[in-house]
Structures are given as structure tokens and as C-alpha cells.
Design a protein around this nucleic acid. Sequence first.
DNA 1: AATAAAATATGATATAAATCACCTTTGAAA
DNA 2: TTTCAAAGGTGATTTATATCATATTTTATT
Lengths: 229, 229
Amino acid sequence: MPQKSHKHVTCENCLARDKSLFSAFCDANLDELEGTKSCSYFKKNQPLFIENSSPRGVYCINEGKVKIFARGEEGKEQIIHLAAAGEIVGFRAMFSGEPYKVSATTLEESNICFIGKNDFLNLVDTNPTLRNGIMKELSLELAERATFITNMAQKSVRERLASSLVLLNDIYEEEMINLTREDLANFVGTATETLIRLLKDFKDENLVRTHARKIEILDKEGLLQIAGS
Amino acid sequence: MPQKSHKHVTCENCLARDKSLFSAFCDANLDELEGTKSCSYFKKNQPLFIENSSPRGVYCINEGKVKIFARGEEGKEQIIHLAAAGEIVGFRAMFSGEPYKVSATTLEESNICFIGKNDFLNLVDTNPTLRNGIMKELSLELAERATFITNMAQKSVRERLASSLVLLNDIYEEEMINLTREDLANFVGTATETLIRLLKDFKDENLVRTHARKIEILDKEGLLQIAGS
DNA sequence: AATAAAATATGATATAAATCACCTTTGAAA
DNA sequence: TTTCAAAGGTGATTTATATCATATTTTATT
């Protein structure tokens, strides 16, 4: 397995920056950002922050993937979002004035930069472009979650799994979807056993193929058809 | 039935302003707001805006209630939020750069003011307090929806109904909850028949009482216990 | 007041999905 | 390389909830 080691990435040559809220930053902005951020290597399954704790800053993913999840009454995780390179994680709590309502944990080895709360809020205050980007992002996520709620309420698990696989396929881009069955179940919102059975159905229907844990999408159109959207 | 008629409410003596994002406005701000807004009377079940249309401004509820809902594949409504007096409806779409992803319809006769997109965005641009309030509001709603998703995924309909009734009780304040069984079902995320049956159970358990359509909460603690939160 | 049209309610039935129990495979660590 | 825990998988069973059908009540409209 290719061991991603710790590396200090500068904002200037951060490959993920293009896709991020910092994409429009000029050199002066970038220098400021570079001066305040710190860069860390995270192992797989390492928490960035956990529910109910106080936010101390935001996390900018240079490389890797992070799951954002809430916990229900009995402690079962519900994955709300999967963040990939370029995404800033945890900025919602910067504005809410409340502790985190969700937790964030890496799904794979990751390089992630940290920007302290004050530095981040200062950037937002002085940079209208960044600010507008954030307001846009908050709004888009709000819409996304309205759809999420509606799907949960009205679609069957089979439909949600099909829709989730297509969505995850986009997040994983070239790579194959690489999640434990439990994480996948917690994203779809079902029991692990049910997920495994339905995934098997999809295999039998030649919609997907599995390579141990990894899931390869064979028929995106077919999945979309099942998802009904 | 007390017929609420059209009345022109000025921002200065708007009773709902205290609870709104405009509560911190100074006199100069209020004058500006007053100059740009228009005030309308809405009948029951009248749409403010509908999914996929282009946003033209925001709606500020002076009196009445509004349901915000998405539609699933087969057109079934999923109510995402119930807005009451003091709330500003539709501002999410001001920042997203996209058409509405949800619809908004009055649940009762309402007095609602309209602020055009440019005027509103101008206010947000020039008023840091309002802007921060909005960012905070967007963030809080995002957290609320994470919980909503988790409840949908992990709680039974019975639990969700209990939790919904408590939530609605707060929204309706002194009044009794006054929603069609279908709307209530679309909020809880279930079939109307199932909702009616479970509501009957709650009546038998002396948790609620109904007066035709209206629902009176008799035992909030008991409901919270069932809701499991 | 009469009539139509929604909304509410109830019963019967089907089924998707959860749960529990158990076994097998995989992969990390010693 | 062995070992052991975690993850993946299968079967049997139960149940919550959707769906369909139909009756009754409430509300709106003529």
C-alpha cells in the first residue's frame, strides 16, 4: 500500500486549492493564509473533531477523505457528508456560536491543514469573495440536506443505496468506492446486514462488482434508474 | 373565524421584528428597510414561491405560518421546516445562485412582507450585523437538518411523531397545533394513514387530545420520553 | 340549508427491512 | 507465519409501516 507520509504543503502549490473556497485568492491572500495555517498528516480513522466539543478552527483537506457524521440515541452513526480534497471541513461551527453538532473522522490517510478560528474569521471578514463563497456553500449544503431528508423519508433502502453509490462514485472519482459496509450502511441509513444483501442483489444484477471491500460501478445508468432520479 | 385582513405594517412597529434577523436594526436601517419592502396579505394555502423557479427576493413573516417543503419523485411533499412570525423565508436561494430547491406555502392567513433581491443583498453587504446573523442562521439550520436526517434514518415513525409534536407545540406557542393530517404526515415522513393511527394511540395514552383538526399536547414529558431525546 | 368535496378514520393485507444468531473471510499485529 | 479481532456474509424470524379499499366526518360552496 502506498504510504502517504507527512508532508508540508504550501497553499501556493496545493493541488486541491483550485477546487476550494480559496481558489480565487491572490498572492497576498495566499501569503496570509500560508502564514496562519498548519499542516498535519492524519492516519486512517483519526478524528478531526467530535460532537459537543468547542470549535477551534477549520480543516482544509489537501489529500484524503473525511466523513462527517452525527450519532443517534443509541450511538449509531449517521453519515451526513463525505468530504474530499479541496473541501473545508468544520466552518459551519465557526458561525453558529455553538459546539459541534457533528463529528469528523478521516476515512483514509490524509493531509489536512488547520486554520485557527480567529485567523479564519479574520479572513472571512476582510475578504468579500471568500465570504460570498462561504455563504454560497452554506446555502448549497442546506439545499443538499433538504434533498437528503426527502430521500430518507420517501425512498426505499434499495433506491437510496443506488443513489448513494452514484454519489460516492463521483466523490471517489477515478478510484473505487472504499468504505466499510458499516460506513456505507450508515450513509444510506440502514442496517449493515440489509446493506450487504442489497449490494449482493446489485452484484447479481451486474450493476456493481466488488473487489474485497472496494466497489466498482459497472452500470451508472442502471443505478440511476433504480434510484429514480 | 377571525378574518385577518390586509394591513400595512411598518417595520418600525412590526411586532415580529424582535424575534427576527432585523432586531438589531437602528432607525436609519429601519427606514431603509421600510422604504424597500412591500407588505401583502396571503390567504391560506397560497404559495410564496415554488421549487425550480428563480428567486426574486425574501419573505418576512409578520403574522401567520409557512411550510417549506420539497417534493419527492412521485410528487409527495416532505416538509423541511415550518416558519412562524419573525422568520425570513427564502434567503438561502439569495446566495446559492440557483433556482429554489424547495417550495413555500402559507398554512394560514398571513401578513408577509417582501424585500427584493437587490435590496436585500445590498442590506447584507452593508450591514455586518445582519450578515453575521444570516451566517449564524444558515449554520444553525444546517445543524438542525443533520439532526433531521439522523432522526429520519434511525427513529421509528412513532418516535418521530412524538418528537415532531413537541417541536410543533413550540412553533404554535399558545395556540394548538393546526395542521392537516396529511401535512403532519409529510412533516413526520410517513403515510397519512399511519400518522392517524399513531395519533390515535397517543390519544389513548392520554398524551394528546384532538379538537377536530387541532391537536392539544397534554403530556409533553411523556412525548419527549417516547421521542427518546 | 343542501350538496359536494375534502379530510379523517378504520380494516385487511402485503412486504421491506430490522433483528438475532451464527459462520466465514480478511487483514493487521505479534 | 500464526493468531486474533474486525469485517463481511447468510439464514430465519419478526414487525413496523405502506398500501389498498371503503366508510364516516368535517368543511367549504352553492
